Amino acid sequence: MAWNVFKLCTGLKVVGSVMILVVLSVVGVSYYAVVVANYVPQVWKGALATATALLVLILFHFLLAMLLWSYFAVVFTDPGGVPQGWKPSSCEDDLEAQSLPLDPTPATTTVPVSLSTMAQSANVRYCRKCCQFKPPRCHHCSVCGRCILKMDHHCIWVVTCVGARNYKFFLLFLLYTFLETTLVTVALLPQFVAIFSNIDEDSSFPSVLATTILAFVLNLAFALSVLGFLIMHMSLVADNTTTIEAYEKKASTRWRFDLGWKRNFEQVFGMRRIYWFLPLYTEDDLRRMTVLQGLDYPLRSDNDSQEF
């Protein structure tokens, strides 16, 4: 019997659980270094030191709250799975025009003859592992063991897939992580420089010095790495493309889901600007925007006037 190497992917679920602890540990170290060890003591010094400390503390707690809100919104929001018994609206529809290259011929051992024949004759995408039809932009995740709507990637940092219903929350998590880690890096830079400039005169406790150095290095590394991911994903949003689709689509033709950067942006972040930077959607957006359900997507027309 052939050994299925993809079964090893289930081990990533355990790794992902550890990653949550890593994220919370970095947050804890940063909180101690910025709040407890360095800036709360400066509140009582008066004058400019007090004003600076208060500003740093307010910004730090605000960004931390938004970071954690966005993070747990990704973790606890289902990215979207194919509804039980879902089928294309019409077997005569050209669904190939709304999807990536079709899967190979469905397995005849697990698929009823009628469904297999229907999939082949109508060019419908079919998942041989889940034994069900796949909506446009849907892909099977070997880690989650199911098809994910508008799957972008499986992220071990959030222990789940990033898909149609939590992609916005993931992007906000990247944004607030970058802002928070940048703030911590800038806030601890003077202390970091002072530690190595006046190492013989520094009277701080060794634990404070070690935590300050560790927090500075960790946050600098995270800020630089997250910035790259944030830029990449924002470019994908501008083209209405997922990470998977970016590698599979043809670069010679314009992506048929590309409705223009503004509409592409609204398909992810919603129609109400006041909610763009919050990890939630309005009831109106959830009702009107079918793309948030992950089953139906508007296509670009020849004159680029496609409406939601």
Rank of each mutant, 00 (worst) to 15 (best):
E266P: 03
Q191S: 15
R300Q: 13
M19S: 09
K250L: 15
A51W: 09
I148F: 02
N123V: 07
S116R: 15
L286M: 11
S121V: 07
D296S: 06
N123W: 10
T108S: 15
D296Q: 05
K150I: 00
Y275Q: 09
S204K: 15
A37Q: 12
F178N: 07
C130Q: 02
D284C: 11
C130E: 04
L220R: 00
D284P: 03
E266T: 12
C127Y: 06
I148W: 01
L100E: 14
T185L: 06
V208G: 11
N264S: 03
S30I: 05
V82H: 01
E283T: 14
V18I: 13
Q267A: 06
S305Y: 04
Y297V: 00
Q84S: 14
G260T: 08
V143N: 08
L115M: 09
L278H: 04
L54P: 02
W3R: 13
N166V: 05
Y31N: 11
R287C: 13
S121I: 02
T110D: 05
F133P: 06
V113L: 13
A122V: 03
C155N: 01
M289W: 02
H233Y: 06
G145D: 03
L24R: 07
C127E: 04
C127V: 06
T108G: 12
D103H: 15
A251R: 14
D296T: 08
V186S: 06
A119V: 12
M118N: 05
S225L: 05
L95F: 10
C155A: 02
P279Q: 08
G80F: 00
R272C: 11
S305C: 11
F229H: 03
V34E: 01
T10W: 09
N166H: 02
S225P: 00
I58V: 15
L12P: 03
C127W: 05
A210T: 13
P112W: 05
C155E: 01
N303K: 14
Q98D: 11
K249Q: 14
E283P: 03
T282D: 05
I20K: 10
F178L: 10
T177P: 03
C141Y: 05
R256S: 13
Y297F: 12
V162G: 04
T253I: 14
L149K: 00
R287D: 11
T212V: 15
M19Q: 06
L24T: 09
L230Y: 12
K168T: 03
Q267S: 10
G270M: 00
L183C: 09
R125E: 10
W255S: 11
S25Y: 08
W276L: 02
L295I: 05
L21Y: 11
V186G: 08
L68I: 10
I199W: 15
V75H: 00
T160P: 03
A164G: 10
R287H: 15
D284I: 11
G228R: 08
D103P: 08
L149C: 02
A251V: 13
L24E: 10
K7L: 11
L230H: 11
P41G: 07
P88Q: 00
A37Y: 14
T243K: 05
I244R: 09
C147S: 10
K45R: 14
T181W: 00
A210W: 14
L278S: 06
L12R: 06
V143W: 00
D152G: 07
W69E: 05
E180I: 06
E283K: 14
C91I: 09
V23N: 13
E180V: 04
M118C: 15
Y31C: 14
K250F: 12
F60S: 09
